[in-house]
């Protein structure tokens, strides 16, 4: 860790980096934002923005259940619950019993209510309010290690399923006729998104997590004309928003998550202008 800190100090001799929590937060941003952005490209194209929002909300229930079951490790509870929840939504959505919007909405509100019910017992919810807004400055070196493992793994899985997912999003019938197991592929993607969301939720917060997934990809989409450009622009915008937002929060003494999201929103607005200009 010291070595990485040393490299950071040499490359970026910034006043803010006097504090190791800033260094940790900076590294976390470098690891988290590209993964969320990449997954976001498909969430945007697959019209799943609302879905990922619901997934973020389910984190409250995840923490609550973890507490009820006496799990020491919040992250484990989040990951397990997030996965189960994601698969459940996916299966119900695929059974086609009601429109996807409605199903997701039902899941979203149910999970918020269930989570609140558990966490608010005895008026103790304040203890968990950080879950809502997250705190990226609280990232520890251990968390960073987990992220450093998760990022390449996530990108690898993402790469493995991308083409099949892409064909599925263009035409499920066509994908099926080419031997793609579309249900499996869709569920695998949903689970991957759930993992990424749960990894990030403690630092970004339930309220803002979806913005990190959707905004950079939505902005990148306005600028791109093919898949590769979409990925490249999205990752760049995600990284820039993360870094600029972190420093803006430091110097403005405010919430890092909120600054990051606002800057991403600014990029989105600019991308809209650029798109209009190009057309």
């Amino acid at each position: 860790m010291d070595m990485i800190y040393g490299i950071l100090d040499t490359l970026l001799p910034l006043e803010a980096f006097r504090f190791s929590f800033m260094k940790n937060a900076f590294l976390a941003v470098l690891l988290l934002t590209p993964l969320l952005g990449l997954l976001g490209t498909m969430a945007v194209n697959h019209q799943m923005a609302f879905f990922s929002d619901a997934l973020g909300h389910s984190a409250i229930t995840g923490i609550g259940l973890g507490m009820l079951l006496g799990l020491r490790n919040d992250l484990a509870a989040l990951l397990i619950f997030g996965t189960v929840w994601a698969i459940l939504i996916c299966v119900i959505k695929q059974s086609g019993s009601a429109s996807a919007d409605t199903i997701i909405s039902v899941f979203s509100s149910t999970s918020i209510a269930a989570g609140l019910l558990i966490l608010a017992r005895g008026g103790k919810f304040a203890r968990y309010s950080s879950l809502l807004i997250g705190d990226i400055l609280a990232v520890t070196p251990d968390d960073l290690l987990a992220l450093a493992v998760a990022l390449p793994l996530g990108v690898l899985l993402w790469a493995a399923m991308y083409n099949q997912l892409l064909l599925t999003s263009v035409s499920p019938s066509l994908a099926r006729s080419r031997g793609i197991h579309i249900r499996v592929v869709e569920c695998a993607f949903v689970v991957l998104v759930a993992f990424a969301v749960m990894l990030a939720i403690r630092w970004v917060g339930v309220l803002l997590i979806n913005a990190l997934l959707i905004l950079p990809a939505a902005a990148g989409r306005n600028l791109a004309s093919n898949s590769r450009q979409h990925a490249v622009f999205t990752v760049l915008i995600a990284l820039l928003s993360g870094i600029l937002g972190l420093f803006a929060a430091y110097y403005g003494d405010t919430s890092a998550g909120a600054s990051i999201v606002l800057i991403a929103a600014l990029f989105y607005a600019l991308s809209l202008l650029a798109r209009r200009f190009r057309n």
């Binding site: 064909l167 080419r178 590769r228």
Partner: peptide, 14 residues
């Protein structure tokens, strides 16, 4: 992108 995605495993975003 569309045709390449169906002919190869390499993710077309690369």
């Amino acid at each position: 992108d569309f045709l390449a995605a169906s002919m190869t495993r390499r993710p077309v975003w690369t």
